[in-house]
Design a protein around this nucleic acid. Structure first.
Lengths: 339, 339
DNA sequence: CTGTTAGCGCATTCAG
DNA sequence: CTGAATGCGCTAACAG
């Protein structure tokens, strides 16, 4: 059987309370000699305190939950890395839930997390226009922070995001600076705040440069490579032999990679004939040929600061700024010409 | 405050025991009328049982732990998908731990999981020649299954793997069938069982075709793109203008992609001049140009069956076969010529 | 500095 | 079919 605090106490000839004290590293209340004796026993029997019992007694579980839309998205691992980095020092556990882009599974996952009595939740939601998940969390008074994805009905809640508007604007500016005037914009599902913001930013960037936003060609995909290829391919094929655009901006790298493929398959030279810019800067972006010029999101940092914000909320702090906007950066690679 | 079983019991005018019975869906012991009343209250107050209390009372936590070497490896998400798939139906929680390729962090993670009192552990270990982690688990009698990575000192423990030897042999056969005779083999760290097996398989495949294994050029990397590029580049540059090999097999896709890049940068035409085969079949493999021919591992299935095997062990079953070997498949894409 | 006591929320006997 | 009692392992007052 696993040793319990009682076993240790007996063997050490002290009370459970004393063992508990050394376990929790309380500096006061235990004599140096006693402490050493107990500590020795603890490592000797290699006793590990029962999290469940602790949790029951203290009301905190020392674990948090992470709910993400799709772990297969290469953006996620970076977030998780950042989260783990922030958690490690505090030795918190991380419950991972993939909601598979399904709002029902998302709620179901949240329920499970509540049962597990996680101390807090990091939520990267599948939907922008639904806040019933949040009500659940609030009702239970479980601290949470939104990551990457905004929930529009709740502008004030804690969250960490990239500046999507700005990033998209940077993409527009970069393309325009290269001389492109006929643009194709492949956006993700508009039910995601992220998509909307990127559209607004991109159109804004164009407008600022005197380009009629209505002149922009629009297409949309679901953030997959295939959808990007399909979107670009469709527009291309509708245009007969000549391409109806000379640059494309896709709202994520995967779709940009799809577009790149569509272009190459039809014999266009990227970046000479047509330029391509993506968004995210996930691993595959640097691997395709030519390597993708893209707007990089600081994913690791996003995860890290999201988790540390959550930890602060859990600790009962009331940080002045509960919302953190991270700066995207333009990473120029091979799908745009040198300026 | 969160409602407890006691609150429900009071409001329903029954005892806690009765509420507990309906909570656990015990078919016997509760009248239909009473049951309905309690159920209504439960959803009305939307009460969720406290996992910690349950765990303490029953000795099981309804959650398992997953320890992986590096979540940034694109192979992981697929595993996790499979695991979640198997877990979902049983509504188990999943604790995720990334050990960052560090055996000490791996043990540390295991400790945390033990404290959390997970019902079982899925371990994809960072090292092949170390089994002290396993002793910890065994001492605590926590069921576990190994995933993807073998621990050599423990041939008998439960695990799910791909047939690495066979996969590598298939790679050799494919390359040889294409007429290649001068081979470069870029392997991963030999401290990983997976690497050893792939080497044995590859050399075996060559030998079977009458190719002296000693004639194979060897290089090694750490499973990263950069290391693959470096390895291939070094051999290439040592060979002067002409390549000292006409085909390369890398022990993982990332290194193969790196090799591909090294080749292209030096002006070699893949697959005309030199052929390349990878291993894993992760997402980037299909994205590079030309798309990578590779040996696919059934990662999702690996995760799924690993998790369901673990679940069976947790349930106290003694499955006849505690080891499952999955079949790899050859995926022919663009880095090898048509046969 | 240390021990005693009383729960935390639930499952599980055992009675009725 | 239902209730009362007990304990899971630990922490947190409160005494001494």
């Amino acid at each position: 059987m696993r040793p319990t605090i009682t076993d240790i106490a007996k063997k050490a000839g002290v009370s459970k309370a004393t063992v508990s004290r050394v376990l929790n590293k309380r500096s006061d209340g235990v004599g140096a000699e006693t402490r050493r004796r107990v500590e020795r026993l603890i490592t000797q029997m290699d006793f590990e305190p029962c999290g469940a019992a602790r949790s029951l007694a203290t009301g905190k579980s020392r674990s948090i939950g992470l709910v993400i839309p799709d772990i297969a998205d290469p953006f996620c691992p970076l977030l998780i890395r950042g989260i783990e980095d922030a958690l490690r020092s505090r030795s918190y556990g991380l419950f991972l839930c993939d909601s598979d882009q399904d709002i029902h599974k998302e709620k179901e996952n949240l329920r499970i997390l509540l049962e597990k009595r996680v101390d807090g939740v990091i939520l990267s939601s599948t939907m922008s226009d639904c806040d019933s998940q949040l009500r659940l969390l609030e009702k239970r008074e479980v601290p949470f922070v939104l990551l990457d994805r905004i929930i529009e009905a709740r502008p004030g809640v804690a969250g960490v995001y990239a500046d999507n508007r700005k990033g998209a604007r940077m993409a527009a500016e970069h393309l325009l600076a290269g001389g492109a005037r006929r643009l194709l914009f492949i956006n993700g599902p508009e039910m995601l705040s992220v998509s909307k913001l990127r559209r607004v930013g991109f159109e804004g960037g164009c407008a600022a440069a005197g380009l009629e936003p209505s002149s922009i060609l629009h297409a949309s995909g679901d953030y997959s490579v295939e959808s990007g290829e399909l979107a670009a391919g469709t527009v291309l094929d509708a245009g007969g032999g000549r391409a109806p655009f000379d640059a494309v901006f896709a709202a994520c790298d995967r779709m940009a990679i799809g577009a790149l493929r569509a272009l190459k398959r039809r014999g266009f030279d990227v970046p000479r004939d047509i330029e391509v810019v993506g968004f995210d800067d996930v691993e595959p972006a640097g691997l395709v040929d030519p390597p993708l010029t893209t707007i990089a999101q600081p994913a690791f940092e996003m995860g890290r600061s999201g988790a540390s914000l959550l930890l602060r909320l859990i600790d009962g702090e009331r940080p002045r700024s509960r919302i953190k906007i991270l700066e995207p950066t333009l990473v120029v690679r091979g799908t745009t010409r040198p300026r």
